[in-house]
Amino acid sequence: MARALINVPKTAKRGQVIEIKTLISHEMETGFRPDRVGKLIPRDIINTFVCSYNGIEVFRADLHPAIAANPFLTFTTVATESGVLDFKWTDDDGKIFAEKANIVVE
């Protein structure tokens, strides 16, 4: 199982621009790397990341093999209302890793 580390402020003022940091464990195998006998190791990367805020998509990233192992992403969003931020990483096999975080907006 992949492990993710998410950093979202627990509370924010309405209208405040908050910064979100995410880090997830994944080798991001490029598909360009030979193994010990010289055969290319098949590509296996996280190719999409989506953050939704109370069900509405607020940020998306399309990723390529040039993203470093254990993808790290930071982005911003406006704190609109209290609720849940959903994070979804999808890899080449279609496997989805999901995490959430709560935020209280005053």
């Binding site: 492990r3 580390l5 940091k21 880090l23 997830i24 464990s25 192992a69 254990n70 790290f72 930071t74």
Partner: peptide, 12 residues
Amino acid sequence: LTSNPGMLTVLD
């Protein structure tokens, strides 16, 4: 620590 990739292993 929020962006140190080693922390993923510490959490494991």
